[in-house]
Design a protein around this nucleic acid. Structure first.
Lengths: 190, 190, 190, 190
DNA sequence: CATGAATGAGCCTTCATTCAT
DNA sequence: TATGAATGAAGGCTCATTCAT
């Protein structure tokens, strides 16, 4: 019965993401969720201890996945600016392809639920690999400010870019994305 | 007859802002709010028709106030970059001094409540005066992209700056603010 | 100021009758009533001690009026059946011209409010004058059953007639009214 | 899982009828009702969507039942007047044995709830079978007026009879019932 | 007398969670 | 494991009534 269960568990996660995306946490009613999936309310409690556990568990799982994905590679032999851009593109694509997951994490971080996420998970590496920043600063290509600030500035522009794409203010084509990247690059280059 | 108390109305608004700041809209319970203020629940309904009206009315009022404040143009005779910085400083200060109000508006804009805000109010001028962008582009000092994009990029960095200050990652002193402004300026200058 | 007050008092009664006619007792909200009249809620409490007092007082007043009106005359010198018919016509007309008042009394009688109406008022003479029944029985023209039963039967048909008129199933003309009267007369004649 | 309890559903209906009989619709408080039955308030909401649904559903069910019962024609081979009387007796008994149900239906018909009863249910056959009236008129035994009027007159007297019995003004014995029937019969016979 | 603000009591309803099968 | 019934706790809102001017 292992397979059937996992299917159900994934269905729960998926539908929860949908609801949070459409209506926020306030919209997650255990009964509604169960109905959407086509299972009984009580069955939800077989998989998760309670509502908090449901949300915190999903958040934890998503954050762990995201962390695992991020740092990998980009170790190709490229000029620094192109490495930077590769990272940028990677995250643009990831954010758009996983917009519901990203939204979920964003929401959780601003909610009281975030307090319940294990610290070990929260402490996971930054999204835009600090290694890259260190490298850039060493090569004299990035402004000499703390990684934390660099990251927050880039993240802000990145996040805004994704928003513009989602709200169809700009297109997901090379030209528009390049423009947006140039904003970010100009901001942080030395 | 007793006279409707402006003090009371302000207390309602103030406490609502506090609660939304700490717990979001879900945390606003009419009973809790009333208790915090020291009035009866039913008194709340003397001032606002219902919970939705409470939130939408406050949002409307705040947005109107904010709009009124912003327009006061920076018509002083300054070089463009300094005009830009003046605007930047104005908003940094405003955002920090009215962080709860800003937070409230931000939250409302992402919630279904925003649909109920009168269109006339929503159509209020953009925060960072488009006039300034037009001027900058005419003088060849700003990159030639749409005002909407320019604004969203600056807003993102501005917002991030405020966050960094609030979370004490940077200080509210000339040096740190200058650094943050230079990020924004480099991003958008031609 | 006597006149102005009486006007207001009558307005209260009138509007209460209207509301009860349209929505029943459940529809009588002190605030709604006050707004309809154009006075303040508190003013209602100047005229009536509370809601119960309002309704019971109106009921009492209406019943007294009705009682006063009814018995009078019909002492003309007519054959019995015509006296009966005169009474019948009188009540048909009265009921239609005062349908809201009648409705109010009917509703009160079935509600807990009726318990609060002074017994003296409740014990008022029957609507269709018992004298008439006594006369009819003495002359051998009416069936020899208790006045109470005679009255209830006639009242039932009378009430039904009024309903048929109001709901436009029959017309308020001589022919239709005659038919309805003949039902009643045949029922009780000996 | 526990199985939905038909006994419980019947208890809800029964107690609702009781309350409406004693205090009208205004007296039906979900909390009181639940306490009377010995269940939790929320359990009521397992069986009915809300208060309106509770009342409308019960009304619908009762009307359907009543309709089903009435049709059983009096097709026995009897003189017309006796057929009439059989019908009369049937309804007297039914009304008395189901006085609370009758009361409930009567009240609903005069309330806004009636608008929510499915039209199909409302269009159910008239209580006193029109067939009988047609037969009577054909045989020249009934007055030649519309069925609607015939029915309303008889219903009025029937209803009044039941009231007299309930209020103990007359007894439920052959003699008294006969007298009341003779009123009705005299009223409508040709 | 007149009024609008203020309130407490109470009602309907929702929802996460547990029960019992 | 799976389920639908059952429930307690809580929240939003209404309304008759009183307060204070």
């Amino acid at each position: 019965m292992r397979i059937k269960d996992e299917t159900k568990r994934l269905a729960i996660i998926d539908n929860t993401l949908d609801i949070v995306f459409e209506k926020g946490f306030a919209g997650v009613k255990m009964s509604t969720l169960a109905k959407k999936i086509g299972i009984s309310v009580s069955t939800l409690y077989v998989y998760y201890k309670n509502k908090e556990d449901l949300i915190v568990s999903i958040a934890t799982e998503l954050i762990e996945q995201q962390t695992k994905n991020s740092i990998q590679d980009i170790t190709e032999d490229l000029p620094f600016k192109l490495k930077m851009k590769a990272m940028w593109l990677y995250w643009i694509n990831f954010s758009i392809n996983h917009s519901k997951e990203m939204n979920f994490i964003t929401q959780v971080k601003k909610s009281p639920y975030y307090d319940k996420v294990p610290i070990t998970v929260k402490e996971s590496k930054s999204r835009l690999g600090t290694d890259l920043f260190e490298l850039g600063k060493r090569e004299g290509l990035l402004r000499d400010v703390s990684n934390e600030i660099l990251e927050s500035v880039i993240s802000a522009i990145l996040f805004e870019t994704v928003n513009l794409i989602i709200n169809k203010k700009i297109k997901l084509n090379e030209k528009d994305i390049d423009v947006m990247f140039s904003f970010a690059w100009n901001a942080i280059k030395s």
